[in-house]
Amino acid sequence: MSALSRLTGTEARLFLREPVGAFFALAFPAVLVVVLGNAIPAFSEPSADFDGERPINLYLPVVLALAIGTVTMTSLLGVLAQYRERGVLRRLATTPVKPSALIGAQLGVNVAALLVGSALMMIAAAVAFGSRGPESWPALLVAFVLGAAAMTGVALLIAAVAPNARASAGIGTLVYFPMLFFAGVWTPGPMMPDAAQRIADFTPLGAASQAMQAAWSGDWPQPLHLAVTAGYALVTCALASRLFRWQ
């Protein structure tokens, strides 16, 4: 087996052995939707406030944004900071496999976890409440990939500049909760105040969430939201690759 595939397989097993992390990445989005749907019956009833649309259908893209935020800001960021602090990356630098391969393996594992968690969430919502998928899959895919790339870049940048694992976890939390707010986790879709909406347009997860909401209702995402997510992805990744310290 090649070094890279064994490295990725090993990191995947380590990921699954961390029960709390694995739960939040894989099961939490589905659990959240099922719990909310059961707690608030109106969630799955057609609503005059939303042009006869069922609120749950507006909420699913927001939960996708939450899944992106959770995997990048907690799982990925936590592992990267820890691997540097504990010298795992440095240890690898003494072997023919570069430490960047380990970061690549972690990215692969987290992307896979995000996809599985998102798929489980959509299946659970469909089974439990008969919710529908996005009207436009291509648009959703573009918005999802750009949003995930932007938040991955933010995670890499925080891991690059934080002096240690504690600081990195702290910054991650400081970014995570406002991001969820701007993504509309507490005030989905039209319920977000206008001023907050203006700010959300320019945050990576807020823009991603709105782009995915547009895709869900069959519209092509606004160019602004695609530009914002793409811009974050490019700038944060470029900065992170310049600033990242391996030890």
Partner: peptide, 18 residues
């Protein structure tokens, strides 16, 4: 040289669950 030289570092740890 990475492939030819084996190194034990004074301070480095592995993944907890490895």
């Amino acid at each position: 040289l990475r492939g030819l030289v084996g190194v034990q570092l004074q301070e480095s740890q592995l993944q907890d669950r490895l």
